[in-house]
Design a protein around this nucleic acid. Structure first.
Lengths: 312, 312
DNA sequence: CTGAAAGCGCTAACAC
DNA sequence: GTGTTAGCGCTTTCAG
């Protein structure tokens, strides 16, 4: 049932090192011998023992992946890409959830050290203090946030908002409101808000915005504030907020064109006409793994990769 | 930076087996010695090499987890539990997606064999032929579906439907429609449909049902068929279908009490008054790991575990 | 080109 | 109680 390199060697009447060479595609094996050995390997379905190989190699490649929430549309897209890319590289992913809590991240780092994780991919879909991120010594790629000297894949917040605004403007909307995140969140919050204000300024639109917490409920509760004035269209900083706004529109009967940043399947289904800006989450995952691989291969340069793909 | 048991031994002036004993909490070590060794271990942050241990043990515990879709509310809940439970057992999970395709499952099984996965947890949230499931030789737990001689965690379909129906009935609804899955799906389909019909019969309700495919879109398209008659309340076989029905209610302006089986965060948020029957997905995950552990420990009995917890 | 032999870091007999 | 020793399955010199 479970063969070892030794048994294969005996069956082939060769030394085990030859079998090893065949397994590792060492060119200096006579093709005749190679085929003989390969045939036996195939016939028996022999698989070299992973642990033994790992031990010999001195390290087993394991990448820790910290997502913020498993059931999040945008993150799942990225995670899917990461999983696939890592599989190709024969790297084992270790997935954990931060649930948007920096403290959890710290905790996971500890676990990773214990489990001898070589590298980490961290989803930063929420404000995360630099000093916590710094706690990870070793290869690291952060997604959706940037820090000095730390590799990252981040999204073009300005482009996302500007793009949505332009489209709404093109459609003829002029009273465009904005539901955003508080400035304490540098990227999803501050940056996007500023882009909104910037666009308003350059297009002579009177800003009408409210900043809330990153939850549908908070968005829902504060949405009414925007509608003390007439509103044609509403831009939401995230899909989560858009869900709250959608509920508001249901309850209040207000009709407006919806636009949001992110990928949210149920919302996309319920509101097919809404504008959504997908950053290219899948691409981001692939890129993250690529960056990580480079770090693992010793290149220690820092890169900040901008991902931006428009959709819908 | 990276120590071995040998170095620790030298630093402590003990043999490496003593260090090993300390690591493995072998009782027959003088507490004095133990402390001395432990102190050094702690000070240096020494972590025994996983691969070496795994090799020695002859097997590295890896459990393959086949979910149908990463971003599914119900499954994420279960997956979360599985991840946590496996972590406690120091078992590495290998997560892959089936995307509701039996062929993918077969493919993943192959991968698992290559990667020397010891056991599998399979999410069966869709019809899956027995012969495919059989392809996995070895410890296996199937969630949400049962097969002869295969360990499983399954849900009490009858109870779920009956429970929702009873509650609707209690609330005074009499014209209760049902949106279900076709009979080709044994559990989510046939079983639930029958439970609906059963309830109708025993409570003298005129059945009003439509069977559709397992997608929101299909539900949405066929929903109108139910409303050729007056409807007070609607029971949906799954959260996905409920999403389609919700859209229908939006578009058609029909008002009715909604009820569905499953856990769906956005829906729960949008329709807080809807009745939902949560099977206890988290519990199911814990149970799945427990069953698997027993198999790994050699008990080869088959168990079919019924999970049922009511909520909302 | 191929085989013999020496370990990788750890655990488990087996001695003392 | 504790040290010594023999491998687990594999890769990698080092000789032939």
């Amino acid at each position: 049932m479970k063969y070892t390199i030794n048994e294969i060697a005996k069956l082939c009447n060769v030394g085990k090192s030859t079998v090893s060479r065949v397994l590792n595609k060492d060119p200096k094996v006579r093709s005749e011998t190679r085929e003989k050995v390969q045939r036996v390997i195939d016939r028996l379905g022999f698989q070299p023992n992973r642990s033994a190989r790992a031990m010999r190699a001195g390290r087993e490649p394991v990448v820790g992946v910290i997502v913020s929430k498993l059931d999040s549309g945008s993150e799942s897209q990225t995670l899917r890409a990461i999983l696939q890319a890592l599989q190709v590289e024969h790297i084992t992913p270790l997935i954990v959830e931060s649930r948007f809590q920096a403290e959890q991240v710290r905790h996971h780092f500890q676990l990773f050290r214990k489990r001898q994780v070589n590298a980490v991919i961290l989803f930063g879909f929420f404000p995360l203090p630099l000093e916590i991120v710094r706690e990870w010594q070793g290869p690291l790629v952060v997604i959706a946030r940037t820090y000095p000297n730390i590799n990252s894949i981040y999204y073009n917040d300005e482009q996302a908002i500007t793009c949505l605004m332009s489209e709404l403007y093109r459609q003829g909307h002029r009273r465009i409101a904005y539901l955003g995140i508080e400035d304490s969140d540098e990227t999803t919050g501050k940056l996007r808000t500023q882009s909104y204000l910037q666009f308003c300024r350059s297009h002579h639109i009177l800003p009408n915005l409210t900043l809330v917490e990153l939850s549908a409920e908070s968005a829902y509760r504060h949405c009414a504030e925007l509608f003390t004035q007439p509103v044609d269209a509403l831009v939401c900083a995230t899909g989560r907020l858009a869900l709250g706004a959608f509920k508001f529109s249901q309850q209040s009967g207000k009709v407006f064109q919806m636009a949001y940043v992110g990928y949210n399947e149920p919302l996309q289904y319920m509101l097919p006409n809404a504008l959504s800006f997908d950053f290219g989450y899948y691409q981001a995952g692939l890129k993250a793994v690529e960056l990580l691989m480079r770090q693992l291969q010793g290149e220690s340069l820092t890169e900040h990769h901008l991902i931006s793909v428009e959709q819908s």
